[in-house]
Every structure is written in structure tokens, then in C-alpha cells.
Design a protein around this nucleic acid. Sequence first.
DNA 1: AATCTATTTAGAAAATTTTCTAAATAGATT
DNA 2: AATCTATTTAGAAAATTTTCTAAATAGATT
Lengths: 89, 89
Amino acid sequence: MGFQETFKALSDGVRREILLMLRGGKKSAGEIASCFDMTNATVSYHLSILKKAGLITEEKEKNYIFYKLNTSVFEDIMMWFAQFQDGQK
Amino acid sequence: MGFQETFKALSDGVRREILLMLRGGKKSAGEIASCFDMTNATVSYHLSILKKAGLITEEKEKNYIFYKLNTSVFEDIMMWFAQFQDGQK
DNA sequence: AATCTATTTAGAAAATTTTCTAAATAGATT
DNA sequence: AATCTATTTAGAAAATTTTCTAAATAGATT
């Protein structure tokens, strides 16, 4: 919660790729990790950052953990940017 | 140039405050620095990051350096976020 | 020309972030 | 119950970022 966490989460390229990847629907941690050239532990770390930022949510099913986008936080961020479109002088 | 730099620039709270501060129009490095409890050198560092990211531009006048928002990059960022509003399943 | 004023640059220390390896967890299968 | 499979957690090393102090720059004033 709080913009600080959300912006920090968005500042990493791997995490932005994960978000784009999830546009197509939910994916398991393993599916996500297989797209990157890093250990599953590292990808798990990135997923935890995205989750703390509220950008994704998790859902356990069998022994998989599926992640999906939480679009409402994207809207909040858009609002932040909207401040720059109005207040123009 | 490049989203990486722009998102990194936006990930710091001090820098986001600077951007909000510049909505009201251009401000000198000194005016900006006086709003923070850190050295002018540190604020100068943050300004350089914002400038490299294309979020602000500078303009020299007398021995002041004025900074102002570069709104076009904000639009590019908004476009990035727009990707998440469409591709919904 | 000497000095002042506003700002940046260089270099180092401190803080934070990213990554890895190894171990832990927890549900599913045998 | 033992083992397998998917994933996370802990702890450490490496990389990056933030901050400071001190010095440099460069235009303006005396």
C-alpha cells in the first residue's frame, strides 16, 4: 500500500515484463519463471514485490500458485499521472 | 530515453515531489532544494536523474538554472499503462 | 581582476536492491 | 508414510542507489 511501494515495484524491468505477461490471464510461478534467465527463487522474489505493491494477487490451486493482475491499482497509478495533465499553466 | 530510466526516475519519492512541485511552473535548482531537508548537491543529483529520464528540462538564466516539466514523456508513460486497460480477458 | 552566488561534479560511505545457493514448506502422488 | 513437485524463505554476496562533504565551474557584481 502506498505509492512508494508501487512505483518501486514498477521500476524494475523484469517486474514490468511479468505484468505484461499476465495481461493474457493468470500464470503459475513456474510458467512465469521459465520466461527468464534467472533462478525460480529470484523470480519468486520479484513476484513478492509485485504482490506487496498490490499489482498482482495470488491464488493457490493444487501445488501451484497462480498469479494475476490486479487492475485496480493500475487505475490508482493512472490517477497519479493525471495530476500532470490538468494543473497545466 | 527508454522506459527503464523513466520508471527508475519515478521510483523515488523525492523525485516525484519535485515533479509535483514543478506543475506550478518552472523553478530554480535552489528553490527546489530549499523544500527538502537534504543538501543542494543531493537535490542536484535527483534533478539530473529526472533530466536524464526526460521528465524535466533545464533552462539557464543568469546564474540560475530553471527546471520545468516535460509533459510529453508523461504521455509516453501513460501509454505504457494503457496497455493494461485494453488487453483484458 | 577579485569575489560572490548558484549550482554541479567527484569521490566516498551508507543504504537498499537484486541475485544466487541451499534449505524449508506444503500439497499431491505412490 | 515416503517421496515428488512447485514454490518460497533465509542468508550472503554483488550490484546499484542515495546521500554527504569538499572542490570545481561559471556567470554576475564589485
